[in-house]
Design a protein around this nucleic acid. Structure first.
Length: 246
DNA sequence: CTCCAGTAGC
DNA sequence: GCTACTGGAG
């Protein structure tokens, strides 16, 4: 039996109230600071983390949508060398796009990139839009990628929820409820992501929480015993209880 | 073999 | 709310 110290996983309403409390704010501060600390020590040095160029960030995020980091690294720089900006992508023949994308799969991603490039040039005069609604309307860009481009390229304070963030926040706040994909659950995760974002260093926080999921709070065999966040984590609490009663 | 990943489109 | 997309991991 796990003692629940957070609101019910069913009630978005309760969570909206809870995140306003000073109790949550203090907790959020601790969690975000620890994740940033962890990131500064353990975060990966990835090529797309050296840039704020919206085109570069978008290419990396589209590649990363269904493809693992190691594989994306092989393609990212080659792609940018061949097609260095939205203009080049907009004009490229489809055969070149497919050639550069060959091996990554999900070829609609690169077709969508070209559609987006053309919209950026024609509708936005070559400047990447900064309004979330505008960004979301671009083909191939959904909630996650919009948040990622906004925070990593445009330096806006925006939450992100990818599979890593989803898993981490589920374990900390919502476990042992099953991580089933209902819309209330998703809304709570976005609410948490938004309210965990620190006022400063949100770039590090967003990069850090994703790396933390990829490296530490992994899908299988998470490294709970050396975790910076275990004292806040419902999943860890249940683990230690299980061990105690074994 | 089954499961998983963001998005679009049904 | 469910499925296709496509390839890697378990």
């Amino acid at each position: 039996m796990v003692k629940r110290i957070y609101p019910s996983s069913q009630s978005l309403n309760m969570w909206e109230i809870y995140v306003q409390t000073s109790e949550f704010k203090a907790l959020a501060h601790q969690i975000s600071q620890r994740l940033i600390l962890w990131f500064n020590k353990n975060g990966r040095d990835l090529p797309w983390r050296k840039t704020h160029n919206p085109y570069h960030i978008l290419v990396s995020e589209l590649m990363l949508q269904q493809t693992q980091v190691d594989r994306v690294i092989e393609y990212y720089q080659q792609f940018l060398n061949a097609l260095p900006n939205f203009e080049a992508v907009a004009q490229a023949p489809e055969s070149l796009l497919l050639k550069l994308w060959e091996g990554l799969g999900y070829y609609n991603r690169v077709r969508n990139l070209q559609k987006t490039a053309r919209i950026i040039l024609e509708k936005y005069n070559g400047t990447f839009p900064t309004q979330k609604e505008e960004i979301l309307s671009l083909p191939g860009i959904g909630e996650y990628t919009a948040g990622a481009v906004m925070t990593f390229a445009l330096n806006l304070r925006e939450p992100i929820v990818d599979t890593n963030v989803n898993r981490i926040l589920h374990r900390i706040f919502l476990y042992p409820t099953k991580n089933s994909e209902n819309s209330t659950f998703t809304k709570i995760l976005w609410l948490l992501s938004e309210n965990l974002l620190p006022e400063e260093n949100y770039w590090e926080f967003n990069q850090g929480i994703m790396d933390f999921g990829a490296i530490h709070c992994t899908g299988t065999k998470p490294h709970c015993f050396s975790c910076y966040l275990k004292e806040f984590c419902q999943y860890y609490q249940s683990l230690s209880l299980t061990r105690f009663f074994k």
